[in-house]
Simulated assay, not measured.
Amino acid sequence: MSEATYDVVAIGNAIVDVIAQADHDFITREGMTAGSMQLLDAEQATGLYGRMGPGREISGGSAANTLAGMAAMGARCGFIGQVANDQLGQVFIHDLRATGVTFEVPAREGEPPTGRCLILVTPDGQRTMNTFLGASHYLPVAALDKGLIASGAILYLEGYMWDPEEPRAAMRSAIITAREAGRRVAFTLSAAFVIARYRADFQALIDDGLIDILFANEEEIVALTEAPDWEAAVTAIENKVPLLVVTRSEHGAVATQNGERIAVPAEPVERVVDTTGAGDLFAAGFLTGQAQGRSVEDSLRMGAIAAAEIISHFGARPEADLKKLVAEKLG
């Protein structure tokens, strides 16, 4: 097996986040559930955008956020995703490349436009996400750079991308490429609604031994296993994946490896401003720790440090010096 030239290569949604503050009355009037995520079509996205308050445009997408966090901590990263050849597409390309992440997939011509996520943040820091996936769900197998995938120590896959047919085929192909190159495959379950649709697919990936690192939160691991609670869910799945990582919001995180459970508390935060991207940045810290050869416990702590930074401000891209924060807390 040749030496990896990238720490992580990820496949995920290429989306621009539009973040605006909103009160709970607005959330209720719009028929939303605070803290939830729903998919919109183009007409719904246009209507909601018109009713939202002033917003900030920040490039997002779950796996892309993870790579931006990793790059901020010094990791070498590559991204595979699809934007349209439009203004938001150019914004996304510029923002991701500016973090130091390699991104070379050509922009797609014509409709649909680049994906966007309309995020409403209530005063308690909860984010309600309304996503129009647009061009991001038209990623074909032909867009895969197999050399890039084979050069990454870990292939990181975003569960949200399993929903449409084209990216699902692309990710299956990428798994084969990574496996043939002797690389590890990490998978994030992303959301309970995705699991509800593709539980059998995800369980088959796990049962076939194709997932080396599985990321989930409490709700997602319960949805995957249909267990009565998160602890029972961990018990049901921990012997099926080499490394399982479960985030628990203010209760910290748990990982299981070789029959051992390792738990860390959440990092203290003076004030929760916006929980957008907390899971993405947790994965960034954890994967960077693994790339640096750190222990599972230290990797969990790095995840907690990165997540705490991201929820202290608006947006899912780090604003503080994550490398410095980790050095101060872990050395």
Rank of each mutant, 00 (worst) to 15 (best):
P242L: 15
L322M: 00
I237F: 13
S136A: 15
D208A: 15
F202K: 01
R168S: 07
A34K: 04
T99A: 00
Q21G: 15
T5E: 05
S312L: 15
G74T: 14
Y6L: 12
L155A: 06
Q90S: 12
E226T: 15
D95N: 10
T275M: 13
A191F: 10
S136T: 11
D321Q: 03
D229I: 07
Y198P: 06
V16I: 13
A327C: 08
V246M: 05
R97Y: 04
I211H: 07
P164Q: 15
A196K: 05
M37W: 01
P54A: 08
Q87H: 14
D17N: 14
E109N: 07
Q292E: 11
Q82I: 00
I305P: 08
I93K: 05
Q21F: 13
E231K: 14
E180R: 14
M73R: 07
F193K: 05
I310H: 15
R179A: 02
D298S: 04
V296C: 02
D212L: 08
T235D: 15
A142Y: 13
P228N: 13
V185K: 02
G47I: 12
E165D: 15
V241C: 07
E158F: 12
L144W: 03
R97I: 12
T66R: 04
A42Y: 07
R183W: 02
P106M: 12
T177G: 12
P140D: 14
Y6Q: 12
G159F: 14
T256E: 04
P113L: 07
L189S: 02
A253D: 06
A174G: 05
E109I: 09
M52R: 02
I27V: 01
D229A: 12
A233F: 09
G277Y: 04
L39S: 09
L133F: 10
I149P: 00
A320C: 10
L139I: 01
E30D: 06
F282W: 07
S136M: 00
Q90P: 01
D145Y: 03
G252W: 02
F202C: 11
L133K: 08
V264W: 05
F79Y: 10
R248S: 03
L40C: 02
T131C: 04
L300Y: 00
E57D: 06
D212C: 01
S59Q: 13
P268E: 06
R248D: 04
G303H: 14
E297G: 13
Q38C: 03
N65R: 01
M1W: 07
I154V: 13
P164T: 10
Q290T: 08
T288K: 01
F103R: 09
R76Y: 08
A14P: 03
L144V: 02
A232G: 12
R116G: 02
V269M: 14
R183A: 05
L325I: 10
L67W: 06
I195L: 03
T235P: 09
T46K: 11
D201K: 00
D280P: 09
V141Q: 12
S151F: 06
M302R: 00
S190M: 04
A174E: 05
A45W: 00
M37E: 01
Q38P: 00
V273R: 06
